[in-house]
Design a protein around this nucleic acid. Structure first.
Length: 415
RNA sequence: GCGGGUGUAGCUCAGUCGGUUAGAGCGCUAGAUUGUGGAUCUAGAGGUCGGGGGUUCGAUUCCCCUCACUCGCCCCA
């Protein structure tokens, strides 16, 4: 490795990509705020058990994908592979149970040691929304609606479908799990190698296996809905009804399961086929037992996470960047005066760029490249007259403007 | 972790059935235009052909290893 390069699966986010990411985050945050969510920012690493205990010792994420290390003080810590566990930990350590219900929005990097692919990095970025302390299906409806609304605002909802399922309460989930293990054990000899492995670790995962042989067996497998107790059935019915009232289309998918242990009841995924095999753009579910599992007061929760890289690739247009005003001083006296004038214009809210070097021609070229709306040219002639030359870069027209009137002229030009 | 593809200039890519100075377009720099951008023309810079090893008189080209990206599996956002 002669040339220095970034670590595998990590990327520098600049230019167009940076604009896309920012757009996704801004859109999601604005949307979440309108739904009454507040911002939360949590550390990007936690004590390892925060993730290991909640996500499930048997999950792939915990078994082989976490960036876990011992720090210099001997603590066992892990870079966050997701947000939910950290937010629940923050809820407990911050003593927030008095403030329930709580609604949080977060975004930032997360880390998983996986084989990189398009839409799958080792350092990736997520938006995240969580509702804590609401037992009823209202939270499920709101959190799903928020996800759909963000996709709508990003202009990508038409290319996504909402897959919906319920895992039931712990009792129902356990009963179904046992039924699946019994069923698949009878067909063990015909299952793929992967699925035989899943049988002991995460039997529900066999349901969404892509192996054709597996799918033939899955076709006759018991269905979740037949193992739901009355309470779980009612709960899910209420969620569906709420989505129906809002006109949110969804696809009931009995094979939609979760890889992480803490999920109960509602599970959902907004998926797209426009990104190859990494199709989930926003996914989440209910996790009523998680906070108790972490040693906190029993508190229900539901949330989702969305992949910023995936959403950024999917979003077709990002808002046009602000067109700057290029300030072009010529000569030392002009440079000094320009410094002050630029400062004042920026303080007044204008986007002003002044190149650090170059003659008039060069600086106008730069201004053109930056899609500047206008250039303010200041040379000895202008200084003598107490004016600047305002050049409209769209039509090439120029006019003299008194120093005190620059702001008003620019405002008129930009409106 | 498993299987396939790719890697040549800043970017997108040609090319070399193993041979002496490796090309194009775009971009960049400079000039035509010493106070006027977008267009045009001219000139120029820029490559250890991803890295290491092997075969060979000779390797960017063939072989092995390795790194990165990519497609599918796995997993997931």
């Amino acid at each position: 490795m002669a040339k220095i390069q970034s670590v595998r699966g990590t990327h520098d986010i600049v230019g167009e990509t940076a604009a896309r990411h920012q757009h996704v985050v801004d859109t999601a945050r604005d949307c979440a705020h309108r739904y009454g969510f507040g911002d939360i920012d949590i550390p990007i690493f936690e004590f390892t058990p925060v993730f290991a205990r909640t996500m499930g010792e048997g999950s792939d994420v915990v078994r082989k994908e976490m960036y876990t290390f011992t720090d210099r003080g001997g603590e066992d810590v892990t870079l966050r592979p997701e947000f939910t566990a950290g937010i629940c930990r923050a809820f407990i350590s911050g003593g927030m149970q008095q403030d329930l219900p709580l609604k949080f929005f977060a975004h930032g990097p997360a880390f998983r040691y996986e084989r990189p692919q398009k839409g799958r990095q080792r350092q990736f970025h997520q938006i995240d929304a969580e509702i804590l302390g609401v037992e009823g299906p209202g939270a499920d409806i709101e959190i799903i609606t928020l996800g759909g609304e963000i996709l709508h605002q990003l202009g990508v909802l038409e290319r996504c479908t909402l897959e919906l399922n319920t895992l039931g309460d712990p009792e129902s989930r356990m009963a179904y799990r046992d039924a699946l293990v019994a069923f698949f054990s009878d067909h063990k000899d015909k299952l793929s190698e992967d699925s035989v492995d899943r049988l002991t670790r995460n039997p529900m995962r066999i349901l969404d296996s892509k192996d054709e042989g597996d799918q033939r067996i899955v076709a006759d497998a018991p269905l979740m809905k037949d193992y739901l107790n009355a309470a779980s059935k009612d709960f899910f019915a209420a969620v569906c009804e709420g989505l129906d009232v809002l006109g949110i289309a969804y696809n009931l998918n009995q094979r939609l399961v979760r890889g992480l242990d803490y999920y109960t009841h509602t599970a959902f995924e907004f998926v797209t086929d426009a990104l190859g095999s990494q199709g989930a753009v926003i996914a989440g579910g209910r996790y009523d037992g998680l906070i108790k599992m972490l040693g906190g007061p029993p508190t229900p929760g539901i949330g989702w996470a969305g992949g910023i890289e995936r959403l950024g690739m999917l979003a077709e247009h990002t808002p046009a960047p602000v067109r700057p005003i290029a300030f072009v001083p010529l000569g030392e006296a002009a440079e000094r005066l320009a410094l002050k004038l630029c400062h004042g214009l920026r303080r007044d809210g204008f986007t002003v760029d002044m190149a650090f070097r170059g003659n008039l021609s060069r600086r106008l070229k730069r201004a053109n490249k930056q899609n500047a709306r206008a250039a303010l040219i200041l040379g000895d002639d202008e200084i003598a007259k107490g004016i600047v030359t305002l050049r409209d870069l769209d039509d090439g027209g120029q006019q003299d403007v008194a120093l005190d009137d620059i702001g008003t002229h620019l405002r008129k030009l930009l409106s």
